[in-house]
Amino acid sequence: MASNFSLQPLLELMQNRTDEATRNLGKLISAEQNARSRLEMLEQYRAEYADKLRDATTQGLTRQVLANYQDFLGRIDEAIGQQRDIVRQSEAGTRRGQEHWKQQNTRLQAIGTLATRHEAREKQKENKQEQKLLDEFSARKFVADTKSDEK
Rank of each mutant, 00 (worst) to 15 (best):
R36Y: 02
R46F: 07
D19C: 11
A35C: 01
Y45D: 15
T22W: 09
L42A: 04
Q33H: 13
Y45E: 15
R38L: 04
L42I: 00
M41I: 12
E43C: 07
L39V: 07
N16Y: 11
N16E: 15
Q44F: 07
I29P: 00
L28K: 01
M41P: 01
D19Q: 14
S37H: 11
D19N: 15
E20L: 14
M41D: 13
A21H: 03
L39M: 09
S30P: 00
E32C: 05
E32P: 00
R38I: 00
S30I: 00
L39A: 04
K27E: 13
T18C: 13
R36C: 02
S37W: 03
N34Q: 15
A47Q: 14
Y45K: 13
M14V: 09
T18M: 10
A31C: 05
A35I: 01
A50Y: 12
E32I: 00
A47E: 14
Q44K: 08
K27Y: 10
L28Q: 04
Y49G: 03
M14G: 01
T22I: 08
A50N: 11
E32V: 00
E20N: 13
Q15V: 02
A31W: 01
Q44D: 06
E32F: 02
M41A: 15
I29E: 13
E32Y: 04
Q15K: 09
Y49S: 05
R46N: 10
E48K: 10
N24T: 13
R46P: 02
E32R: 06
S37R: 08
M14F: 11
R23C: 06
D19G: 15
R38E: 06
L25A: 06
Q33T: 12
Q33I: 10
Q33L: 12
T18Q: 11
G26I: 07
E48H: 13
A35H: 01
Q33M: 13
E43D: 11
